[in-house]
């Protein structure tokens, strides 16, 4: 048997991921790379890397990357896309990046119907800075800045980005997926592929929210983290397509 069972995607470099064991950032990188390979758009793709654990995305993706300031990836993507309207431009952002400091940028990119794709990694926490509360942190979830659990009276309730963005006219396609099992991974890949295809055919703003684990800052083993995501995150953040404006 000398056929290759697993070939590294052309859209990934040889650099090994620095992500913690059980972190799902790497899975999502791989899905994006496969989609870009399959669509044959690697040579015209420009990715926007955020500030967060995926800040080093430019070391892993094998195409042009612009590293953005914290939260501003959709604005940076707007600048890139306006200069290169025939390119494939996507942002890759965490929940601190997109749902907190960069909330305005993503809302207005969607409102303008900016022809970009956003991959939004919701792990209910600030990974890179060591586990602080995010707008997406669940009620009662313990983080370093909600050490007694997220208190609704004091810190409010989780922000449901996909639901919120689906109310915006300019948004073309909004979906929430997870990569916790093979079947969900296939669905995640299909949604991400669609979000890129729609961009390439010149339709509006597309966002795919991916529920993701952060075993390190959740204080769990990789397996416990997947379980926790299934029993706590998915009920708060139901999976599915929230908006498919031109769709059937």
């Amino acid at each position: 048997m000398n056929s290759k069972l697993y070939a590294r995607s052309e859209s990934l470099t040889d650099a090994p991921f620095h992500y913690c064991p059980g972190c799902q950032h790497g899975i999502v990188h791989r899905i994006i790379a496969e989609v870009i390979d399959e669509l044959g758009v690697r040579k015209q793709t420009i990715g926007i890397a955020p500030v967060g654990c995926s800040v080093l995305a430019y070391e892993y993706f094998n195409f042009d990357i612009v590293q953005a300031s914290h939260g501003r990836a959709p604005a940076v993507a707007t600048g890139v896309k306006r200069v290169c309207p025939d390119s494939t431009v996507f942002t890759y952002q965490g929940d601190g990046d997109l749902a907190s400091i960069g909330c305005a940028e993503v809302v207005h990119a969607a409102a303008r119907g900016e022809r970009i794709t956003t991959i939004f990694i919701n792990n209910a926490i600030y990974g890179m800075t060591g586990g602080q509360m995010a707008p997406t942190t669940l009620v009662d979830q313990v983080t370093t800045t909600s050490p007694y659990g997220r208190n609704v009276n004091q810190a409010g309730t989780p922000l449901c980005i996909s639901e919120m963005l689906s109310t915006i006219q300019g948004a073309r396609f909004i979906a929430r997926v997870a990569v916790n099992n093979p079947s969900n991974m296939a669905k995640a890949k299909a949604a991400i592929k669609k979000a890129f295809q729609l961009q390439n055919s010149g339709e509006g703003f597309c966002l795919v929210e991916v529920l993701s684990t952060c075993p390190t800052n959740w204080g769990m083993t990789p397996l416990e983290a997947v379980k926790w995501l299934e029993t706590n995150m998915i009920p708060q953040y139901p999976l599915g397509v929230f908006k498919d404006a031109g769709g059937e």
């Binding site: 420009i46 612009v66 953005a68 501003r72 707007t78 600048g79 890139v80 306006r82 305005a104 940028e105």
Partner: peptide, 19 residues
Amino acid sequence: LQAESEIAAINMVYGAAGA
């Protein structure tokens, strides 16, 4: 492009200049 804020505007500049 009328940006949503000066912050967005300069980051659009960053993207366009980067391209």
